[in-house]
């Protein structure tokens, strides 16, 4: 890897990535579907990719680690070489360009304060392994991303919010997040993955302040934070939440009048 080359890319603080029109269409679709929209209704692809990139890198590293573990079982003699070989195979299988090789168009990505560390990590640790330029590396991640169904893509884009909700559900702590501009204080009950024709992911919970059982669309959840406050739901409330989940009518809300 030529350091000057990487440096040129990075110092410009704007990375040009050639992509196929198929990839661009999916990114346009997702930016619109997941709320990355500019004031003139145009898609904010830079915002979407910046939100997505840390998760894509994390997933790639996890998948590679699994492959290495499997490779090590076959050879304890020269596992390092085997892992290098496995890495090449891994890239050629999962991150190939095949049907996406017509790079008719391009996108511009500008690293933000939050993603600067991720770009640094890619440049320092990933590019020497992959032996490709930064733009090619990111294109490969995006090529992998666009092959996934929409509910999975949504879950990847909002991975931090999804993880926070799952953590709150597992520990029983109250979760706070912004939803349609309002701060919500919620008991996390469960989630529904890729539901219905639009493949939406829903987070089912109990809105503590408004005493409401409702389903939150994952892509509209922002700034999720798990608090240290425990919430102990009554059996009645759990029954009502289970009933709500079984009814599958996620557009409605249930106002609880009684003291649950």
């Amino acid at each position: 890897m030529n350091n000057n080359f990487t440096g040129t890319y990075y110092s410009a603080e704007k990375i040009k990535i050639k992509v196929s029109s198929f990839v661009l269409n999916i990114l346009n679709n997702d930016a619109q579907a997941f709320g990355f929209i500019k004031s003139n209704d145009d898609s904010n692809i830079n915002g979407l990719v910046n939100k997505l990139l840390p998760t894509l890198l994390e997933v790639k590293k996890l998948e590679r680690a699994r492959l290495f573990e499997a490779a090590k079982e076959f050879s304890s003699v020269d596992s390092e070489k085997l892992c290098e070989f496995a890495d090449i195979i891994f890239d050629s299988i999962y991150f190939y360009d095949a049907e996406l090789e017509n790079l008719e168009t391009y996108i511009w990505i500008r690293p933000t304060q939050n993603t600067r560390a991720v770009f640094d990590e890619i440049i320092k640790s990933e590019l020497p392994k992959a032996a490709v330029e930064l733009s090619v590396y990111i294109r490969r991640l995006l090529n992998r991303y666009v092959r996934l169904p929409q509910y999975k893509r949504e879950a990847l884009v909002f991975d931090s919010e999804f993880e926070a909700f799952c953590e709150a559900g597992a520990t029983g702590h109250i979760i706070h997040f912004r939803y349609n501009g309002e701060i919500q204080s919620v008991f996390a009950y469960n989630y529904v993955y890729g539901y219905g024709r639009d493949q939406e992911n829903y987070l089912l919970g109990y809105d503590i302040e408004n005493r409401m059982i409702r389903a939150y669309s994952l892509c509209e959840v922002r700034n999720a934070k798990v608090t240290r406050t425990l919430f102990r739901p009554s059996d009645k409330l759990i029954d009502r939440l289970a009933e709500f989940q079984e009814n599958c009518d996620f557009q409605t809300t249930i106002k609880l009048e009684e003291n649950f």
């Binding site: 029109s21 661009l24 269409n25 346009n28 145009d42 898609s43 017509n102 008719e104 168009t105």
Partner: peptide, 17 residues
């Protein structure tokens, strides 16, 4: 298939939006 033209790409983007 032949690479899409910038015009086609603009139309596709407009349709999505």
């Amino acid at each position: 298939v032949k690479a899409k033209t910038p015009e086609t790409q603009k139309k596709q983007k407009a349709a999505i939006i």
